[in-house]
Simulated assay, not measured.
Amino acid sequence: MSAPRIQAVILDLDDTLFDHLESARRGLARLVEELGATLDPQTAAAWERTAEHLKGRRHAGEIDRAEYRRLRIRHLLADLGRPEEAATADDAQCDRLYDRFLEVYEEEWVGFADAVPTLRALHDRHLPVAILTNGPEERQQHKVRALGLAPWVAGVWTSERLGAKKPDPATYLAVCTALGTDPGAVLHVGDDLENDLRGALAAGLPALQLDRRRRVLAGSARIAGLDEVLGRV
């Protein structure tokens, strides 16, 4: 028996439609400029490595959200060649600098170049598109509006709104219900292996993993660009 024809598409937001890495680098460059320096590739890479390391510590319960942010700023100051300032910066100063980073990061939000064209093409094919994202309601809705995605989607469903996170099957199924479409006819696409591929497949949706960096690109369930979705529907 052949697979049902795709009647709707669910897309992830962060690192699928929204380019978090580029947005963060632009915001960091502005923060570093305000600190009287110029961002170089080594410092940008160190900022990202530090984030991954500290996320691990935070998930392990070793540090809380506030300490995560303060340590990122102290590491940044050290990476900018200011070890004494990094050692003596108090919590209030670190908090101010991280808050400023978040401000300029938001001002630099950018979507991937293929995001709007793909959404527009799906819209022209009369395929409803929904966004399903593990994130806070207000911020994720703001991203969708700021990136010009809102006119092309049927709605945005966040983990905060649903009370559950991907890969919980209830999240995908809730969106399918809202779209009025059987899960087997709803294609789910996103960058995360667990949340956007395995989780969706387990919930009964066909799914594709978007691997823009071609890190593990292999097999029929992976694509390297969002526009490749158009050849799958």
Rank of each mutant, 00 (worst) to 15 (best):
M1E: 06
M1H: 06
S2A: 09
A3Q: 08
P4D: 12
P4C: 06
R5P: 05
Q7D: 12
A8T: 01
L13H: 03
L13K: 06
D14L: 08
D15W: 10
D19P: 07
H20I: 00
R26K: 07
R26C: 01
G27W: 02
A29L: 12
R30K: 10
E33Q: 11
L35M: 10
T38W: 13
L39Q: 12
L39I: 05
Q42D: 14
Q42I: 14
A44F: 03
A46N: 12
W47F: 03
W47E: 06
W47M: 04
W47S: 01
R49Q: 13
T50M: 14
T50E: 15
K55P: 02
G56H: 10
H59I: 13
A60I: 00
I63A: 08
D64I: 03
E67W: 09
R69E: 13
R70Y: 08
R74H: 10
H75D: 09
L76F: 01
A78L: 11
L80G: 09
P83F: 04
P83D: 02
A86M: 03
A92N: 14
Q93G: 10
C94L: 04
C94T: 10
C94P: 14
D99G: 13
R100T: 04
E103R: 13
V104W: 15
Y105C: 07
E106I: 07
E106F: 09
E106K: 14
W109D: 09
F112E: 08
V116F: 15
T118M: 14
T118V: 06
T118G: 15
L119P: 01
A121E: 15
L122P: 04
L122C: 02
D124R: 15
D124L: 15
R125G: 01
P128D: 13
V129P: 05
A130G: 03
A130E: 02
I131K: 12
I131M: 12
L132R: 07
L132I: 01
L132Y: 00
E137S: 04
R145V: 08
A146W: 12
A146H: 14
L147D: 04
G148A: 08
L149G: 02
A150E: 11
P151Q: 12
V153T: 02
A154M: 11
G155I: 08
T158N: 11
E160Y: 08
L162S: 09
A164C: 08
K165M: 11
P167S: 07
Y172L: 04
L173M: 07
A174Q: 00
A178N: 07
A178G: 05
L179A: 00
L179R: 05
G180N: 09
D182G: 01
A185K: 02
V189I: 03
G190R: 06
E194S: 06
N195L: 15
D196H: 00
D196N: 10
L197M: 02
G199M: 07
A200H: 01
L201F: 04
A202P: 11
A203K: 08
A203M: 10
L205T: 03
P206K: 11
R214F: 06
R214C: 05
A221L: 15
R222F: 02
L226E: 00
D227I: 03
R232T: 03
V233R: 12
